[in-house]
Amino acid sequence: MSVLKAIVRLLLVATLAALTPLHAAETNTLARIGAQLEQHAVIRAEFTQRKQMAAMKRPLLTSGRLVLSRQHGVLWQIEQPLRISYVLGEERIVEIGADGARRERGVRDVPGLAQVSRVFRAMLGADSAALREQFDAAAHGDPAQWEIILTPRNAQLAQFLTRLQLSGGRFVSDISIVEAGGDTTQINFHHTQGSNALSDTELQLFGVDQTPSAKPAGTR
């Protein structure tokens, strides 16, 4: 089971828990981590993902590239063992096959998808405010070297997920997901870089109309 699949499930589950205040110090740490990631309009990284599933004889290994644009959303490009890309935007989700064929879906058509987009970005960008809507968060370390452990806030969520763990420094470097059924997923990010703007190829994948007069620049 993939990272996001777990999260989609979580999001489909309505939470009943009331907001529980974090310790001031932790709130502070989380806010600072979020702030340093927010400096960049675009973040690019390479990822390797290792999924351990009960149904599989051996772990499923995937690698590829991630582009996180604060303006346009997330581009998740799997390069190994097959080529397939996913664009997760505010309004729609696009699956792009190896042959370039696009399968689009409006996020409004599918329950919970709009929030997936927000939380997925929140997770990759360590946006604590968005994550705390669904999870209890515990933070350790300082902005140079930190770790956040997220646990679902109610039993409904806990049916699917035991723990979500993010760690990193300037950027998120590792994500670990432990599902209630025992499946686990580890994602490692490397060669992460901040940038101001998307390349033309990336804009094209995001489905952004590139007219010379109105070439979208990165925010801030």
Binding site: M1, S2, K5, V8, A54, L60, Y86, V110
Partner: peptide, 14 residues
């Protein structure tokens, strides 16, 4: 198997 997310509810792979 490879989709980073599911379009809605999903049953287990098995």
């Amino acid at each position: 198997l490879y989709a980073p997310f599911r379009f809605g509810l999903a049953l287990a792979v098995a």
